[in-house]
Simulated assay, not measured.
Amino acid sequence: MGRRKKGRDISGWVVIDKPAGITSTSVVNKVRWAFDAKKAGHAGTLDPDATGVLAVALGEATKTVPFVTDAMKAYRFTVRLGQSTNTDDAEGEVLSESETRPSDEEIEAALPALTGDIMQVPPKFSAVKIDGQRAYKLARDGEEVELTARPLFVESLVLVERSDPDHVTLEMVCGKGGYVRSIARDLGEALGCFGHVRELRRTWSGPFDVEDGVTLEELDAVAKTDAIMEFLGPIEIGLVDLPELPTTESGAVKLRNGNPGMVIGTGVQYGDEAWASLNGQAVAVGRFKAGELHPSRVFNTN
Rank of each mutant, 00 (worst) to 15 (best):
R185D: 01
W33V: 03
L152N: 00
A274E: 08
K124P: 00
R297S: 12
R201V: 13
D212M: 05
S250N: 14
L245R: 05
E91N: 10
N86M: 04
G188Q: 03
A71S: 14
W275N: 03
K39D: 13
V68T: 09
L54W: 03
L81N: 01
V210G: 00
V94P: 05
G178H: 00
T148V: 14
P246K: 09
R185Y: 06
S250A: 15
T225H: 09
E230S: 13
R150F: 00
H42E: 02
L147K: 01
L159E: 03
Q83H: 11
S156E: 08
M1L: 14
V28P: 04
S11K: 08
P19Y: 06
G82M: 06
L245N: 07
T25V: 11
Q281I: 13
E218F: 10
V168F: 10
E249I: 15
L216W: 08
D131R: 14
K18M: 04
G195C: 02
P246Q: 09
P234W: 11
G251D: 04
Q83E: 15
S26H: 13
V214T: 13
I235H: 05
A110Y: 07
T266M: 14
V268K: 10
Q269P: 06
K5H: 14
R8F: 12
S156G: 00
T23N: 02
G52H: 02
A109C: 03
H294T: 07
G238A: 04
A61W: 13
G195I: 03
S126W: 01
D272Y: 09
N29Y: 08
S296D: 14
K289E: 15
Y75V: 00
K124Y: 01
P243M: 10
T247Y: 12
G132E: 07
S182W: 02
R202Y: 04
Q281L: 15
A50V: 04
D70C: 03
L242S: 11
A274N: 08
D9S: 14
A57E: 06
W13Q: 06
R256C: 08
I22C: 05
S296M: 13
G142I: 05
D47S: 04
T266E: 15
L200M: 06
G192T: 10
L157R: 04
F288I: 13
R162V: 13
L58S: 09
N302S: 14
F35L: 07
I183F: 07
G206M: 05
G82P: 06
G52K: 01
T266S: 14
I237L: 15
S96I: 03
T148N: 12
R256I: 08
G192C: 02
T215L: 04
A139K: 02
G7A: 11
S296P: 07
P295C: 10
S163L: 11
K39S: 08
S26Y: 06
L216R: 06
T62Y: 13
G195F: 04
E106S: 08
D9N: 15
T203V: 12
K5R: 15
R287L: 15
L293G: 10
G233D: 07
